[in-house]
Every structure is written in structure tokens, then in C-alpha cells.
């Protein structure tokens, strides 16, 4: 990075660190922080959509649909989430390969499950074995995002279902009295008002989602935990920057990173709550109204 970095062994500590922290491997480490943000940015809306679908389904008058919605949201209770993470990533992987196998090679005679093996025809391999490295990485990341979305979608479904029930029933009846159809009442009265009731729960889920991001490491993604372990391990004098076992300090840095992220989110959520409380029939909304007049 810097011109004086050619021979690190001769440098004083300050320059040594400025060289060490800007070498190629560290840039990969810094990039992996972007993976965390990418995961948050994609997972949050997708799981919100899953949750919304689940909550709407739970309210449905068609019984099987309501059961499906309730089953989905109830599924994640009582079982550690990490079990779902490890489970879904395999199931999704095998499911996709199985489906493509059925489509691509219907005349395949052999069993797919042979003892401890899961064998599909070569055309159904996902991603195909000669695909470039980035395809493999993107595929792995997409599977991870989908897994997160399934689990956190169920959490969101739970919260949104509660929020929909918290909207004063008189409001919905008023809508019906004005001759609105069920769909109109849902979209024009229920949905705009439910967010303020959902926000504490959704905020909580957001904080939990942040704290769940290091689990990407378990799903085989090269995320910040992976790089912290890689870079922190001790290096002998064969390497350009020899150092003892520094993994503790790397994890300390990650800890501080997550603390900052949590703090910033808390402040942001507090602002959002204030914004959404305007004009609502809640205590906070009432306080705002009084302050305005």
C-alpha cells in the first residue's frame, strides 16, 4: 500500500502496523464487512415480506391457508434457530438439485440416495462443477440469505400477526360501515396503522438479526469471523508480517463493531418510533399531538 512497506522487518511499530493493516489479506477482511451489510440489506426486506405473507395468511378465512400461516410461524418456536440454519441450508441445496434432476434428466435410472451419498446427474449439479468461483460464492450466499429469510420471516410473521390484532377493531368496523370490501379494509385501514404496533417487535428482530449475522460462518461463507480467525492466527518468520496469536484482538474488534452497530440501530429505531407515532391513537401519539398545539 505505502511505498515504505517493501521491507516490514526494518520498520518501527507505527509504520509496521500501517503496512500490516493495509495488506491484501486485510482488504479482503474489510470487504467481508460488506458481506454482513449485504446480508442485512437483503434479508430484512425479504423476511419482512415472508412475515407479512404469513401474518396475512394466518388471518385468512380459508382454513387451510390460515393453518399454513400459523404452522409456519409456530415452526420456529421451541427449537434453537441454529438447528434451522444448519437444516435449511442442506435441505435447500438438496431440494434444488433434486428438482433440477427431475427436469434435466428424467430417464436417470439410479437411485439418488445411495447410502450416505446424494447423487444427481451431472447436468443437475448446482452450481455446475465447471462454473467460475464467483458463481459458487454467490450461490452459497443466496442460499444463506434464503435460510435467514425463512427463519426471520417466521419471527416477523409472529410480530405482524400480533400487530394486526392490536389495531383497534372499531376502526375496521368503521371501514366496513362505509361500504369498503374486506380487501379495502385490509389495505387502507389495517396495514397503514399496524406498523406502530409492530415496531417494537420488529426493532427487536432487527437487533437479533444483527447479532445472528456471525452465524454466516457456520453456513460456510467467508465472512468476518472466517477472516478474523484466518488473519489472527500466529504467523512465523516465513511470512512477511510475523506475529503471535492475535485472534483475541481480532475478535475484540468484531465485538466493538457489533456494539456500535447495535447502538446506532437503537438510536435509529427510537427516531423511527417517534416518526410513526404521529397521529396514532396511542399514548405516544397523544403526547406528540399535545406538543404540537
Amino acid at each position: 500500500m505505502f511505498a515504505f512497506c517493501t521491507d516490514p522487518a526494518t520498520l518501527d511499530p507505527l509504520r509496521w502496523f500501517s503496512c500490516y493493516l493495509t495488506n491484501g489479506a486485510h482488504f479482503l477482511f474489510y470487504q467481508s464487512f460488506l458481506v454482513v451489510f449485504a446480508l442485512l440489506a437483503v434479508t430484512a426486506p425479504v423476511s419482512l415480506a415472508f412475515g407479512f405473507a404469513a401474518a396475512s395468511a394466518s388471518r385468512s378465512h380459508i382454513l387451510p391457508v390460515a393453518w399454513l400461516g400459523k404452522l409456519y410461524t409456530a415452526m420456529v418456536r421451541g427449537v434453537p434457530d441454529i438447528v434451522f440454519f444448519l437444516f435449511f441450508i442442506l435441505v435447500l441445496d438438496q431440494g434444488i438439485e433434486y428438482l433440477r434432476h427431475q427436469i434435466a434428466c428424467p430417464e436417470w435410472a439410479e437411485e439418488i440416495r445411495q447410502g450416505a451419498n446424494f447423487l444427481v446427474c451431472p447436468e443437475a449439479r448446482t452450481p455446475s462443477s465447471n462454473a467460475p468461483q464467483w458463481v459458487h460464492e454467490v450461490y452459497g450466499f443466496s442460499l444463506a440469505v434464503f435460510t435467514y429469510a425463512i427463519v426471520f420471516g417466521a419471527f416477523c410473521g409472529n410480530v405482524l400477526y400480533g400487530a394486526m390484532r392490536a389495531v383497534p377493531h372499531a376502526q375496521l368496523e368503521t371501514g366496513a360501515a362505509y361500504g369498503m370490501s374486506r380487501a379495502q379494509v385490509f389495505w387502507r385501514i389495517l396495514v397503514p396503522q399496524m406498523w406502530i404496533y409492530a415496531l417494537p417487535g420488529l426493532g427487536n428482530i432487527w437487533l437479533i438479526l444483527i447479532k445472528a449475522t456471525p452465524l454466516l460462518f457456520l453456513l460456510g461463507i467467508e465472512d468476518i469471523v472466517y477472516w478474523a480467525r484466518e488473519l489472527g492466527g500466529s504467523r512465523n518468520s516465513v511470512y512477511q508480517y510475523p506475529h503471535p496469536d492475535w485472534r483475541f484482538w481480532y475478535f475484540l474488534a468484531l465485538l466493538v463493531f457489533y456494539l456500535c452497530l447495535t447502538r446506532v440501530s437503537e438510536i435509529g429505531l427510537a427516531r423511527l418510533t417517534g416518526h410513526l407515532s404521529r397521529g396514532q391513537a396511542t399514548a405516544a401519539g397523544d403526547t406528540l399531538r399535545k406538543a404540537a398545539t
Binding site: 447479532k211 449475522t213 475484540l252 468484531l254 465485538l255 457489533y258
Partner: peptide, 9 residues
């Protein structure tokens, strides 16, 4: 902070 990171650290 995540429990996962706490364990590692």
C-alpha cells in the same frame, strides 16, 4: 454483541 463472537473471544 452476538453470543457467537463472545464465545470466540
Amino acid at each position: 454483541s452476538p453470543l457467537f463472537i463472545q464465545f470466540f473471544m
